[in-house]
């Protein structure tokens, strides 16, 4: 029974794994081509496990940026996981041990978090440890496998396919969001406010933007805040 939950997690994670591999390959290629030690690239995927920040870090390293600057940038870029961790903590089975919780937190990414959040397993609405462990493990494995492929073998995918696969995780997000937007008006509004505010920060010149990390945090909080303000009660199925 525990085993089947773990397998279910692995299975649910397949789309994430599919999306991670080409991006991780690109990360490996970039790392190798910037002349950064292969060991550094491997360890980064093993211990940081956060896509965008790894690209930025490799870029900054190749520009010879100071260590402190690279670490601070990583912190800012990845701080959005703080919000996600807080949200996911409420979806986790209450009796999950502290050890299990601290293990699972390592696997929180934009993708594992969103997929877990919209998942309701039949038996109850709270998520059990083995399911999340399976989901995160397959994603983590794909990320690291892709990194090694990129580092040691270069681009094994044709360029045009590698380019098109850049959209994979975004369309997966669409697949996660649309069903909930269809059935819940509050969720529809929350997502639209977040999209519009993120676009406003990026496209309207007189609205001050921050780093990519803060832009996402700000628009996410704005969306969730408007939702809480406009739809404070849980009477619709949000």
């Amino acid at each position: 029974m525990k085993n089947s939950l773990f397998l279910q997690g692995l299975k649910y994670g397949i789309p994430i794994a599919l999306g991670y591999i080409p991006i991780a390959i690109a990360f490996g290629i970039l790392t190798a081509s910037e002349g950064i030690p292969l060991l550094t690239g491997m360890l980064m995927s093993l211990t940081v496990f956060a896509g965008a920040s790894q690209f930025v870090a490799v870029n900054l390293m190749s520009l010879g940026a100071a260590s402190g600057e690279i670490i601070l940038t990583t912190f800012i870029l990845n701080f959005r996981h703080f919000l996600m961790s807080a949200s996911l903590s409420q979806r986790l089975k209450e009796d999950t041990s502290l050890t299990y919780r601290s293990m699972l937190s390592f696997g929180i990414t934009d993708e594992t978090f969103s997929l877990a959040s919209v998942t309701t397993l039949e038996e109850n609405s709270k998520l059990p440890f083995p399911f999340l462990a399976g989901l995160m493990l397959i994603s983590f494995t794909a990320w690291n496998t892709g990194t090694w492929i990129g580092l040691f073998m270069g681009n094994i995918l044709p360029d045009i396919l590698q380019n098109s696969m850049g959209i994979a995780l975004y369309v997966m997000f669409i697949g996660l969001l649309v069903p909930s937007m269809k059935t819940s008006f509050p969720i529809l509004m929350v997502a639209i406010v977040a999209m519009l505010s993120h676009s406003a920060i990026i496209f309207i010149p007189w609205i001050p933007g921050f780093s990519a990390g803060w832009n996402i945090i700000l628009s996410t909080m704005l969306g969730a805040f408007c939702g809480t303000l406009l739809f404070p009660k849980e009477d619709s199925n949000a």
């Binding site: 969001l177 977040a194 993120h198 676009s199 996402i216 809480t228 739809f231 404070p232």
Partner: peptide, 26 residues
């Protein structure tokens, strides 16, 4: 209301992650 706020986070995050970045993903 904090719980409510946290329950909206996944959908707000999805919205912010998708748009506008998806436009520049290929």
């Amino acid at each position: 209301h904090i719980k409510r706020f946290l329950s909206f986070i996944p959908f707000a995050a999805l919205g912010a992650l998708i748009f506008p970045e998806i436009l520049f993903s290929t």
